[in-house]
Design a protein around this nucleic acid. Structure first.
Lengths: 403, 403
DNA sequence: TCAGTAAATTTAGCATCTAAATAAATATCC
DNA sequence: GGATATTTATTTAGATGCTAAATTTACTGA
């Protein structure tokens, strides 16, 4: 019989030896275990991954070769050792493992440096003029970043994530709108800062806050609500962070249609402005001791704590406003919880109490819980770090292929 | 040296031979290709999966053994054959491959039978008293289902999905609320119908409509808005269908807080009731020729097409209402598109035109597109079928493991 | 009946895993 | 200090499931 060479042509040669895909799975297991644990012996990896010793050591060797892991043969040095042959130990490679998060707020730009397990290395911040233009913000931010990296001898970051008070689409851009506020808050960060990092991302600050909360929350449908100068929400539903077209999910301009609300101005802004306005109008209040132009939101809350009538009245209106906002967003999105975030969160409890009272008047409509973030004023920063770690993680060998 | 039997104990015996995971991947490839294509020869599978012939035949053999595929050696019978050894052909096993979708609406209960590739086998429906209780609905539905299954000789369904006009949580339950409407719409389907199917699911009807649209839409952030008796939305953001706590995502009760709207009553309901009310109040209109209690929404739209002033006035108010609703939900969720669904969708264009005009007055607030569903009055039914297929698919060998 | 063709089947080789046996590095006890 | 126990690394054998190539089978058509 004649040799049929046609046959081989229909065997449709595949690109690679097939077994690679399993290989990837196991590489991942080992890397992930090391990531979660920090510093592990091969034996611990065997325990954690349910793989054979041979496999674990093989994968680890390869991960060391690719630069993901580092060998650290100090079994003795670390006290936790008794008898027998000293164990090999592995940890994440330090060079890959520094990420930075930046919260580029309207009044202040903050930066945090952390390792891939989320341990913070440094945090610092600078004030900005609230009206500063995009270029000015770029300049200050770069200064802040360069200084910090130099101090710690970091050549290049694993990832850099920037949070801004503007909607951001999946490409990092904000919608172009007449007033130019969003444009000033979200200038071309990439052009200025890309050289400092391997991976780069711009995100909405409320979304970053939501990411941070996601790490703590047991509920999987909630919003992180920024309530300072303007309302803004990072919305997580069924465990997914929503982005929406042009990044507009969680934008609050629709509040113009809500009865008794009318705009997206934040509780901090209103506390301050209502107080100033009332004082200018001659209202009686203990706040009079402060010059009207210098009254801050905090002062109003403090005065309310002292039973000052004007301050109490203001808080009452804020509470009603908050209740409305929460009722609408939780009603539509099916939120279990709304977490108040941002710089003011710490002092908001009195307003929450009022809002709770209001919400209780329509029990059919709302089964949502109101809470204050436990992550402090700089939630967004923490979210940025988390997101940065996530970004690095996504570049880990083959991980994306299995999503 | 002494034989160390202790060693084997630290090898932490893994459960299975490791190569299975890749096996799974390839099994999946073959199954998926067959699913998508319908009836394939091994050679086609080689082409589609980029696997070797040996592998494909092996996997196919196994899938036949597990009951997923069926061999169909009619290469000759099907005309498309020329020379050479006749090819083996495979297709999905028919026994596994019938799914049913039911749209259990307030006025009508519809049913569709389809195969796993979505090809409809039969569709039928029955009317119900709008006020019928849960038991009555169960009875009618079972009758409808049993009859259809008997006719086609189907013993047991691969999956059965029921759409109801009520929020449904991931367990299939609706929140318990005083008025009992949701309870009547979502009785204990499972107890009554589980015997007819392997997989069972209850879903909100608007969510099912959204699932159906998801198959056609190029946008990945949109809502399917039901506008008949009450508003209700199935919301897809970033390609994910939202459910929310207790299935409340897309619930419209929050409309009570929206200026100029005030409740979640649908366009169909309002067209009808406003017309009846106006006629009862003595308004002048061509609708007078119909007894007030028999005026339907359709009549109002028809009259408006004839320039009847009362009807035009009603449509104007509906258009403004729709614009409000759309502005709020798209504003908060970042929707690119809102698709009007349900029985009335076909005649709504005049209302959409008015809504578009209203939306254009605030271009900064809204960049959302309004459209009518192209899937006809029974979108939910189609969504139910899709969902059913998805459910069966999820039980396919190992597919879930790689998500 | 005998090429010709297209497909299935068999075979060899390879990669990567587990499991088991063996070797190495250290601690402890005498 | 040397034997022994202990812990770990390394090597080896066996299994699985893939690709690639060779071989066999089943049919068509002149």
């Amino acid at each position: 019989m004649v040799k049929s060479m046609t046959d081989s042509s229909n065997q449709h040669s595949a690109t690679e030896p097939g077994a690679t895909s399993m290989r990837r799975l196991n590489t991942q297991k080992v890397l992930k275990a090391t990531w979660d644990r920090g510093l592990v012996t091969a034996s611990e990896l065997i325990e954690l991954t349910s793989l054979t010793r041979a496999t674990v050591l093989n994968q680890a060797k390869e991960l060391v070769a690719t630069g993901w892991l580092r060998e650290a043969e100090d079994t003795r040095a670390a006290g936790a050792y008794s008898k027998g042959r000293p164990a090999l130990r592995y940890e994440l490679d330090a060079a890959k493992s520094v990420v930075a998060g930046i919260d580029a707020g309207q009044h202040r730009i903050s930066l945090a440096l952390a390792d891939l397990r989320g341990k913070e290395i440094e945090r610092r911040s600078l004030s900005v003029e609230p009206g500063a233009c995009g270029e000015e913000r770029l300049r200050i931010t770069e200064e802040l970043l360069r200084g910090t990296l130099e101090k710690h001898g970091v050549q290049k970051l694993g990832a850099l994530v920037i949070g801004v008070p503007a909607p951001v689409d999946s490409g990092g851009f904000s919608p172009k709108v007449a007033d130019g506020f969003w444009a000033a808050m979200n200038p071309d960060w990439r052009a200025q800062l890309a050289e400092y990092t391997h991976l780069f991302s711009v995100e909405n600050d409320a979304n970053l806050a939501a990411v941070a909360e996601l790490g703590l929350e047991e509920s999987d449908s909630f919003a992180a609500l920024m309530v300072g100068e303007r309302f803004g929400a990072g919305v997580v539903i069924d465990g997914h962070l929503l982005r929406g077209t042009h990044g507009l999910a969680g934008e609050m301009r629709f509040l113009s249609h809500v009865t008794g609300v009318g705009d997206a101005l934040g509780l901090g802004y209103l506390a301050r402005e209502q107080a100033r306005h009332a004082l200018a109008g001659g209202a009686e209040s203990s706040l009079r001791r402060i010059p009207a132009e210098l009254v801050r939101a905090e002062d109003v809350f403090q005065a309310a704590a002292q039973q000052d009538p004007l301050a109490l009245e203001i808080l009452e209106s804020l509470g009603r406003r908050l209740a409305k906002v929460v009722a609408v967003i939780s009603g539509f999105a099916g939120l279990q919880k709304v977490i108040l975030s941002g710089a003011m969160a710490g002092i908001l409890q009195p307003v929450i109490d009022i809002a709770d009272r209001e919400l209780a008047r329509e029990p059919e409509l709302t089964c949502v819980q109101l809470a204050v973030s436990e992550l402090g004023a700089e939630v967004a920063l923490q979210g940025a770090i988390s997101r940065g770690i996530e970004l690095v993680r996504a570049t880990a060998p083959f991980e994306t292929q299995n999503r």
